[in-house]
Amino acid sequence: MNGKGLAPDGTIAREGALDRVPAAFAPVVDAARARIEGEFGARLHSAYLYGSVPRGTAVPGASDLDLMLALADEPTAADRAAAGALEAALDRAFPQVDGVGVLVFGARTLLSDLERHDLGFFVACLCTPLLGEDLAERLPAYRPTPLLARETNGDLALALPGWRTRAATAATDREREVLSRGVGRRLVRTGFTLVMPRWGGWTSHLGESAELFGRHYPERVTQMRAAAATGRTPSADPAVLDMFLNDLGPWLAAEYTAVHGEKAPRP
């Protein structure tokens, strides 16, 4: 892999591996594997890690654990409830993780033509196999193209109203912190993919992403650096969320549409 996250043939290299999991997080990963097998059994097609833990950059007590489950059939309400229970159980049991997130999809959805350059890319390049058959073997190689940019993050405008509602109804600092971390990360990733085709590579590093964005949009780099910092260390300050949701976010959504167009609609 070169300095731009690419394989020798110019395609985006898979960024994580189980042998990169920091020692402090190994018990969490082992427990997650066992709980997933026990809870989902034959309904599970495969399970994956993503984020800082399989990249080897997770910090005990500060980083969260991110999991994605691919089910043999489309997920039901019971499956989503089980995923929520798994999140809570792992978060309670392991102080080295600051939050656990479990995404649940049907394997057919992940392999569908509609998701080829969004969830398919996510599986093939950003997810690390934990259990079952690796769906990446049935997906193509990916390059840092405008198509990939459009389909991964061309729907930021759709997320803003829901985030504003959550910010307005947040009753605790913890709720605001969880929201600010998620919004900060999404803004940085959107800012990076806005300039990704011009840079010609891939990174999931928040700080590097903000700086690459800033090369093309210096007037917004201070805000993007704040988003990157909040993605690592969340903030309960309402002013931070206000800047994200009512200034940087709307501007970024409009600029993204102007440069790459809108993501293909989902049902």
Results as ranks from 00 to 15, higher is better:
1 M>Y: 14
2 N>V: 02
5 G>R: 05
5 G>N: 05
6 L>S: 08
8 P>H: 01
10 G>V: 01
11 T>K: 00
12 I>T: 07
13 A>C: 11
14 R>Q: 10
15 E>L: 08
18 L>D: 06
18 L>M: 08
20 R>S: 12
22 P>K: 04
23 A>M: 04
27 P>F: 03
28 V>I: 04
31 A>D: 12
31 A>V: 01
31 A>L: 00
32 A>H: 09
36 I>Q: 01
40 F>G: 08
42 A>D: 10
42 A>V: 09
45 H>R: 04
49 L>M: 11
52 S>N: 09
52 S>I: 02
54 P>F: 02
54 P>M: 00
55 R>F: 10
57 T>R: 07
59 V>S: 04
59 V>D: 01
60 P>I: 00
61 G>W: 01
62 A>D: 15
63 S>R: 00
64 D>K: 04
64 D>W: 04
66 D>I: 00
68 M>K: 05
71 L>H: 05
71 L>Y: 07
73 D>M: 00
74 E>R: 05
74 E>I: 00
81 A>R: 05
82 A>L: 06
85 A>T: 13
89 A>C: 03
92 R>L: 13
92 R>G: 15
93 A>S: 12
95 P>F: 04
104 V>P: 07
107 A>N: 06
108 R>F: 14
109 T>W: 14
109 T>I: 01
110 L>C: 14
111 L>R: 08
116 R>T: 11
117 H>I: 05
124 A>Y: 05
124 A>W: 04
127 C>G: 10
131 L>P: 05
131 L>S: 03
132 G>P: 05
134 D>H: 08
135 L>D: 06
143 R>F: 14
146 P>W: 01
146 P>C: 00
149 A>H: 08
150 R>E: 09
151 E>H: 05
153 N>K: 14
154 G>D: 09
160 L>A: 10
161 P>Q: 01
162 G>R: 07
164 R>Y: 08
164 R>K: 13
171 A>Q: 13
175 E>G: 07
177 E>C: 12
177 E>K: 14
178 V>F: 15
179 L>E: 08
183 V>P: 11
185 R>S: 11
188 V>D: 12
188 V>T: 10
191 G>S: 04
191 G>R: 00
196 M>T: 02
198 R>D: 15
198 R>T: 09
199 W>G: 11
200 G>A: 01
200 G>Q: 02
201 G>A: 03
202 W>N: 15
207 G>C: 02
208 E>F: 06
208 E>C: 10
212 L>S: 11
214 G>V: 01
216 H>Y: 15
216 H>F: 15
219 E>H: 12
219 E>D: 15
220 R>N: 15
221 V>E: 06
225 R>I: 10
227 A>Q: 05
227 A>G: 13
228 A>L: 01
229 A>V: 03
229 A>N: 04
245 L>Y: 14
245 L>K: 04
248 L>T: 12
250 P>Y: 05
253 A>H: 03
255 E>A: 13
255 E>L: 03
257 T>Y: 02
259 V>M: 07
260 H>P: 12
262 E>F: 04
262 E>H: 03
262 E>D: 14
